[in-house]
Design a protein around this nucleic acid. Structure first.
Length: 208
DNA sequence: GGTGTGATCGTA
DNA sequence: ACGATCACACCA
């Protein structure tokens, strides 16, 4: 199978997650296993996490077995297990020395929709398929076995097919935190129905 | 449309 | 103990 779009250069990931996060909006996230059905979503919602300076980050208290991927090179997939049952995926992106990441919170299904629906029978509508960090992983078949995957080598890929990030994404505080709630480090494609929750109430820099 | 709650377990 | 969550029940 020929994947759509181009791989971002390695330098794309080697920047502050606050800069990378909004640029991930509109990119394709593809899971194309060698022995399985390819599936893909277009990223519509992300959150940035910094390292040592961000009390909400898994990296805040230094490296552990769980978060070691965050302390490795940028451009890898950091997959973690939470609430005893859910997987969530991040793009590791930071300059060396401060473990940063971008949590992939929601995507719009674009390929292999039938496969994703079979993986998520609880999703009654298309907009329920990948509208949440754990839903997105479930739809794409991403779990802990893919932690550490190089996003430029697969089988999970990030691709740029020419759809640009929105000029005025919705900006809000991050979801589900008890600390770090003062920072508005969540970005959502305005008006998109596949976000994890309605993207109003947030601030759009240009008013859109 | 909205809110409230139980599930379930690795990690610190 | 507690989570970068989800699904379903229940009320409106």
């Amino acid at each position: 199978m020929r994947l759509p779009g181009r791989r971002p250069p390695g330098s794309f990931f080697a920047r502050d997650p606050l800069v990378v996060a909004p640029e991930l909006l509109g990119k394709l996230l593809v899971h194309a296993p060698a022995d399985g059905e390819p599936t893909a979503v277009r990223i519509v919602e992300v959150e940035a996490y910094r390292g040592s300076s961000d009390p909400a980050s898994h990296a805040f208290r230094g490296p552990t077995r769980r978060n070691r991927t965050m302390f490795g090179p940028p451009g890898r997939l950091y997959v973690y297990f939470t609430y005893g049952m859910h997987w969530c995926a991040n793009v590791v992106c930071d300059l060396p020395g401060d473990a940063g990441a971008v949590l992939l919170r929601a995507g719009e299904p674009v390929f292999g929709i039938d496969v994703m629906q079979a993986r998520r029978p609880a999703a009654r509508r298309l907009r329920d398929l990948a509208s949440g960090p754990a839903r997105l992983c479930q739809a794409l078949g991403i779990d802990g076995a893919l932690d550490g995957t190089d996003l430029r080598a697969g089988p999970v890929w990030l691709r740029d097919d020419g759809v640009p990030p929105p000029e005025a994404p919705i900006v809000t505080p991050r979801i589900g935190l008890t600390r770090g709630t003062e920072s508005s480090w969540r970005w959502v494609v305005g008006g998109n129905l596949h976000a994890s929750r309605p993207a109003n109430g947030g601030v759009s820099p240009e008013g859109r």
